[in-house]
């Protein structure tokens, strides 16, 4: 079960004069959890947004199930079966939980939405995430706690029959028990054969659930290694210095990396 389902080849991305991603190679395998780590500003969220069709890429290729694809819009990504939990959650505060979860993909006819169907499906998904403190799925998102909002954002991404799920710091606002739920979910999604990407700054979480760890350092992919082959210390070194022993950037290059 380690077919590459999503591959990035030499993807680069600049915002104006600032080059944020330098020829990044990245592979997501079906049935595996790939952790994407890196310091603040390393380009993790940018990478995710490029895959999600929010930012157009400047160069390189995106391959999905082996075929080159162009992802011009979020709808393209969703059509491929790529779901994203954004770091900023991307929820509309004025809409309720159900409306947010189905936003852009409402069920029913254009002229008459099927509210009860959506409500039932939303409840099933939230229940599978063991959300217990949300009293009603018809509550506006504005009245939820930070962690509850994050849970809704996750539920929104795992509501679909998707193939790849990218989670950008999904547990940042969550308490102990809910973090546990999300980590379990991440594992279970992978066991279901999905390709899962987990972005996290928490090394303990990464080592617990990830099969492979990919490290971004100043917009460069410096290492993509199986979790069992590296130690905490090595990963931290990769994140902070871009290099650890013979992993990561080669020595002479390292001096020139500072943009």
């Amino acid at each position: 079960m380690s077919e590459p389902i999503l591959q990035l080849r030499a993807v680069s991305k600049s915002f104006g004069a600032v080059r944020v991603l330098h020829d990044v190679d990245f592979t997501v395998r079906a049935g595996e959890v790939t952790a994407l780590v890196g310091d603040n500003g390393a380009g993790k969220s940018t990478l995710v947004k490029c895959v999600a069709g929010i930012h157009p890429i400047d160069g390189g290729d995106i391959l999905f199930e082996g075929n080159p694809v162009t992802v011009h819009s979020p709808a393209d990504a969703a059509a491929l079966g790529i779901e994203v939990v954004y770091q900023d959650l991307a929820l509309a505060d004025n809409l309720d939980i159900v409306q947010n979860m189905f936003l852009g993909r409402e069920r029913g006819r254009s002229w008459l939405l099927d509210e009860s169907d959506m409500e039932q499906a939303a409840r099933r998904t939230l229940a599978s995430l063991s959300v217990r403190t949300v009293t009603s799925v018809r509550m506006p998102v504005a009245s939820l706690s930070g962690g509850q909002r994050q849970t809704v954002a996750i539920a929104k991404a795992v509501l679909w029959d998707s193939k790849v799920v990218l989670l950008d710091e999904p547990t940042a606002a969550l308490g102990v028990a809910q973090t546990r739920q999300v980590l379990d979910l991440v594992r279970r999604l992978a066991e279901q054969g999905l390709g899962v990407v987990l972005i996290s700054h928490n090394m303990a979480d990464v080592f617990e659930v990830a099969d492979r760890i990919a490290t971004l350092y100043l917009g460069r992919m410096v290492a993509e290694v199986p979790t069992k082959d590296v130690t905490h210390g090595q990963v931290v070194e990769l994140i902070t210095a871009g290099r650890s022993g013979d992993l990561g950037l080669a020595r002479p290059e390292a001096a020139g990396v500072t943009q």
């Binding site: 779901e83 099933r124 995430l129 795992v158 509501l159 029959d161 279970r188 999905l194």
Partner: peptide
Amino acid sequence: PGAAERAA
């Protein structure tokens, strides 16, 4: 069924 539902 969505991914989460199949997973749980």
